[in-house]
Write a protein that binds this DNA or RNA. Structure first.
Lengths: 193, 193
DNA sequence: CTAAAATCTTGATCTAAATCAATAAATTTC
DNA sequence: GAAATTTATTGATTTAGATCAAGATTTTAG
């Protein structure tokens, strides 16, 4: 159950076998079924989730009822409403399951204890945040400087098989365009190749 | 010179007087004049900068020569091209000075040494990254779900005096709209109040 | 296996914001 | 303090992408 997490950690820092063993009890392994909610708007985000298998997604529902996909989290990704998790305020996002998933949950308290018990994990968390930051910054730069087609090509590079794994209208939402526009962009790209 | 930085750190963690003293030598204090470049596209970002005074900004120039403002960094903010800084690859951003500034620079190596010497700073850096991440995520959510006017109102809340401190066309660029559109949005808002 | 629900495509029309253009105001520079 | 440069405003026109609408295809559930 912890294979993907250990692999992920191992890319950034080195844990001794002992530290690895100390690590696991802080997490709650959990299985989720497709379409299940993991977090609902208004709830407090009690966990950060690491996806071992399957796919989750966070999104925001606006006043007109439109969904805006914030993040896709396939295996090897972390997902949460960081703001709610950190401040304990009600979440403005929803998180749900796109493909049956196995995740590792960790609470605020367990995280703090874990960082106390295994200080090198502070470093892992820092690097993690740093990397997320970079990809967010990149996404913002794309939104500012690129049109629908360029943004679509961009996401295909970042998440190569995402178009096969999520419904097109969710990908459209993630890109900040309508499903119709994405459909037209794809037709156009197919024609030119 | 370190007042603002210490204040900023103190909001997140506690440093002993001894740790504070150990901290300062890792930084290079530097003054910059308005319009000066701090980083140019293609250069490697050797420093993360903490702004003690004044204002910096990062932006990207696209193929058509249009500037896209990624971040404004007034006093109390960190700024860098994190990707270039971390990977050592050439930067795709520029950073320049909007108001005469005093900044504290820290190199990759000095940062690593600092984190070794004062381990609690790992925590500070992690929290820092986490907070940036939250505001970036929030910005993305705004870009996806809000129109020009709502986004303008949003940035006024986040950076209350930004409209007084930076030229309107830069604020427009930050919002992902043209200066003309921002001018019209502002006229509209004035009329309705 | 079939009905219902969800997803995708395509066309017609509309609209928020971009672009183009010209002038005005403010700021910087020498 | 006058000229040059930068910044902001306003109007006319265009356009990328949204919205509306209807049918086709695929997936899901009983």
């Amino acid at each position: 159950m912890f294979e993907v997490l250990f692999e992920h950690i191992d890319k950034k820092i080195t844990l001794t076998k002992e530290e690895e063993n100390k690590l696991t009890p802080f997490f709650i392994p959990k299985k989720y079924r497709k379409r299940q909610y993991v977090l609902q708007q208004g709830d407090i985000c009690k966990y950060i989730a690491f996806v071992e298998k399957g796919m989750l997604r966070s999104f925001q529902v606006d006043d007109k009822g439109n969904e805006h996909v914030i993040q896709f989290a396939p295996e090897g990704w972390w997902i949460a409403d960081n703001y709610s998790f950190l401040t304990g305020s009600p979440s403005s996002y929803d998180i749900d399951v796109l493909e049956d998933a196995e995740v590792l949950l960790i609470t605020q308290t367990a995280l703090e204890e874990m960082l106390q018990a295994i200080p090198v994990m502070e470093r892992y968390m820092r690097i993690l945040m740093q990397n997320s930051l970079i990809s967010m910054q990149n996404r913002i730069a794309c939104t500012l400087g690129s049109n629908a087609e360029e943004r679509y090509q961009g996401v295909l590079k970042a998440l190569p098989n995402i178009a096969q794994r999520v419904p097109q209208h969710m990908l459209a939402s993630f890109l900040g365009i309508t499903p119709e526009t994405l459909s037209r962009v794809r037709r156009q790209l197919l024609k030119n190749s």
